[in-house]
Design a protein around this nucleic acid. Structure first.
Lengths: 207, 207
DNA sequence: CCATGATAGATAGCCTGGCTATCCGGTCAG
DNA sequence: CTGACCGGATAGCCAGGCTATCTATCATGG
């Protein structure tokens, strides 16, 4: 198909598609003549993935580029893909909050306590430390008391995620499901957590 | 204290503080003369809250303004504050994905199945529907099979969150903890989920 | 009591990110 | 053959989050 049809079938404007190609998010179409190119279903799928990562996952163009590079890396083991995806989507810390070192120690202790096989210097551990330090900085240090409840929940979620990923048959789907599950799974989880808040709040304060 | 000290003690540049005052995020200092104002600890605390919501929670200035309006609303019941916070932080849907109506029905059925006391038209239910429709659109509709595992985890998380909120003694802290727990709690949860992924992946694929 | 540095408030400008508009020579379909 | 469409390139637009500059005005140490 040509670019007009690709645009119609995905709802993405033609200049935007061209922009994504320039930015390296979307492979160019196969040229059939100097100014005609052919796009196929893989382009439709890729475009939908791009818009999903941006609109639902809130990723920027440059982060989407990195994430897709991880998706396209041929035959990387799951552990590598997961690491690359996490590195890509974790935004660099903006302003170091006070008490970050103490929070880092709390996170290291937390990881040890749970017996998790994670390097305490991992980007996601650092992200957790930044969040905890921020809690403390605004006078909500006691939030740390719920960490273990969160951890139990996360263990269950991670098990479900890994089971879902493991169910994929071909390698491409598997790798993509790691990335998609990581990014869009966050959106699902936070939306669902909010629904559970509403439910709990209704039970506790209304009925 | 004067604005220079406020800047030094929070790490926020003076022109930025003025900008936040202009934008209605931060109350102006108490004027002691036409060009001198006095700031106190409440300004420090508020500034840290603003930066936390922006840097860790990823909120925009306009969303922070709405969220803080909910925090400042005097004596609203928890249920109202929670609803206002959720409305404020839920970004308007960018581009409606295909199959959204079907996803809405799946969400309504999910809520019914869990027995949650939530209006299926709630903003967070809509956000969940958008995420699920996006999963389907990129060929990962089977992700819905993990929804119930997520739900069990979310019920546990929400219970912990409500217990934490209920532990606050004064009304101001309580209201603030609802907002902070909703926004920054997301950051904690997604960081922790990723750590659990790394752990699970290490166990499954390495050892 | 005055020189120096900080201050409030207002206005204008800067920079990044994500598009969007325009143009050009060329292609294709009826 | 003609009018819609195309690929590729360049330039422009707009929102968001600051940042710089200016004008009085204030405060305080010598």
């Amino acid at each position: 198909m040509r670019i007009g049809e690709l645009s119609r079938r995905t709802g993405v404007a033609v200049p935007t598609i061209k922009y994504y190609v320039r930015e390296g998010l979307l492979p160019a179409g196969r040229l059939t003549s100097p100014n005609q190119a052919d796009y196929d279903d893989s382009h439709i799928r890729r475009l939908r993935l791009i818009r999903g990562l941006m609109d639902v996952g809130g990723l920027s163009v440059s982060v989407v580029r990195e994430v897709l590079a991880a998706v396209d890396a041929p035959e990387e083991p799951v552990h590598k893909v997961l690491g690359a995806a996490q590195e890509a989507i974790t935004p660099p810390t903006v302003g170091e909050p006070d008490g970050l070192d103490e929070a880092r120690r709390a996170v290291a202790e937390f990881i040890r306590r749970r017996g998790w096989r994670v390097d305490p210097g991992h980007v996601s551990a650092e992200a957790l430390a930044v969040a905890l330090a921020t809690f403390r900085g605004i006078g909500h240090g006691a939030f740390e008391e719920v960490l273990d409840d969160y951890a139990v929940a996360c263990e269950r979620i991670a098990a479900a995620d890994l089971a879902y990923v493991g169910r994929q048959v071909d390698v491409d789907s598997l790798v993509e499901s790691v990335v998609v599950g990581t990014v869009l799974g966050d959106a699902v989880l936070s939306a669902m957590r909010r629904l559970a808040h509403v439910d709990g709040s209704a039970r506790q304060y209304e009925g």
